[in-house]
Amino acid sequence: MIVLLTWTYRSPKGAETIFRSEEMSAEQAVLIAEDLAKTGRAKQVNFVDRFDSSWTLKELKGYLKGIETEPHNIIVYFDGGFDWETKAAGVGCVIYYDQNGKSYRLRKNASITGLTSNNDAEYAALHLCLQELELLGVHHLPVRIIGDSRVVINHLTEEWPVIEKDLYSWAEKIEEKMDALGLQPEYELVSRKKNSEADRLAVQALAGTEIMATIEKR
């Protein structure tokens, strides 16, 4: 979870002002808040997440303790590719997550038939990611979702209306899956270069090379 801190600072002479930090991981924010408390001059320390929910130090520490043994700090990269000549599609999914004090990277791709466009393939790639999150047991958590598909990202953030019937069906399927898992998605549009790992998996799937691997990051 990404949060920012707000706290009231009181000087030795009684002057007060409110400070607001930059965004950081919840774990880092807790460490800073505890250090601020040692000064005796920081009052009313609160944490605000990206959904504008406010947390006390006790609440945030309890939350972090509760998810320690489950996958959390989820970052998802997705990409899809479509071959117009063969009508074949390849989809790639990369999931970064923390669990039991360790960090992991999951990579998965798949070849798919029956799609009609590159946009279909992009949606199918994101759907594959959600299926993998479900298999990991991820639920009721914020999830950062990153891709280079302007269509998919802008549809799901409601920046653009979904006009095409098949894409509307995909968007509904994605949102239904999000709701079923209780996920709080935060979408981010990046360049293809910054999405190269998922892109490479999609290309490999189109070439017939299927990959499923999870490694611990050191």
Results as ranks from 00 to 15, higher is better:
Asn73Pro: 00
Pro142Trp: 01
Leu126Phe: 12
Thr56Met: 10
Lys61Asp: 13
Leu136Pro: 05
Ala89Thr: 12
Tyr96His: 15
Leu130Ala: 05
Leu130His: 06
Phe82Cys: 07
Lys102Asn: 12
Asn109Thr: 06
Ile67Trp: 05
Phe51Thr: 04
Arg105Ser: 08
Gly101Lys: 04
Asp83His: 09
Val76Thr: 04
Arg107Gly: 01
Gly81Trp: 03
Gly137Phe: 11
Asp98Tyr: 04
Cys93Lys: 04
Glu59His: 05
Ala124Trp: 02
Tyr77Ala: 06
Trp55Gly: 10
Gly90Thr: 10
Gly137Ile: 09
Arg105Gly: 00
Leu115Gly: 05
Trp84Glu: 12
Gly80Trp: 11
Leu128Phe: 09
Lys65His: 12
Glu59Gly: 09
Ser54Phe: 10
Trp84Gly: 00
Arg150Lys: 14
Phe82Lys: 09
Pro142Ala: 01
Leu115Cys: 05
Leu141Glu: 08
His72Phe: 06
Leu126His: 04
Ala89Glu: 01
Asp83Ala: 12
Glu59Asp: 13
His127Lys: 13
Val143Tyr: 08
His127Ala: 11
Phe82His: 11
Tyr104Phe: 15
Tyr63Ala: 10
Asp79Asn: 08
Asn118His: 14
Leu136Val: 07
His127Val: 03
Glu59Tyr: 02
Phe51Pro: 01
Glu122Leu: 11
Gln131Pro: 00
Thr113Lys: 08
Glu122Ala: 12
Ile95Lys: 09
Leu141His: 07
Val143Asp: 13
Leu106Asp: 10
Ala121Arg: 09
Gly80Tyr: 11
His72Glu: 09
Asp79Lys: 01
Asn73Val: 02
Tyr104Glu: 04
Arg150Glu: 14
His140Glu: 11
Lys61Ala: 13
Glu70Cys: 02
Trp55Phe: 15
Leu128Tyr: 08
Tyr77Met: 05
His72Ala: 04
Ser53Asn: 15
Val48Trp: 13
Thr69Phe: 09
Tyr63Val: 06
Val151Asn: 06
Cys129Lys: 03
Pro142Ile: 00
Trp55Ser: 10
Ser149Leu: 03
Ser54Thr: 15
Leu57Pro: 00
Ile146Tyr: 05
Gly90Phe: 10
Asp120Val: 03
Leu64Trp: 11
Ser149Ala: 10
Ile95Ser: 10
Glu85Pro: 00
Glu68Leu: 13
Asp98Ala: 15
Phe82Trp: 14
Asn119Thr: 13
Lys102Met: 11
Val91Pro: 09
Pro71Trp: 05
Leu133Asn: 08
Pro142Arg: 01
Lys65Phe: 06
Tyr97Arg: 02
Leu64Met: 14
Leu136His: 06
Ser117Glu: 04
Phe78Tyr: 13
Leu136Cys: 03
His139Asn: 09
Leu60Asp: 03
Thr116Ser: 15
Asp52Trp: 08
Phe51Ala: 11
Gly90Lys: 11
Ile95Met: 05
Lys65Cys: 03
Cys93Glu: 08
Thr56Cys: 07
Thr86Ala: 10
Val94Gly: 09
Asn73Tyr: 14
Ala125Tyr: 07
Leu133Lys: 06
Cys129Arg: 04
His127Leu: 14
Val76Tyr: 02
Tyr97His: 13
Leu60Tyr: 06
Gly147Met: 05
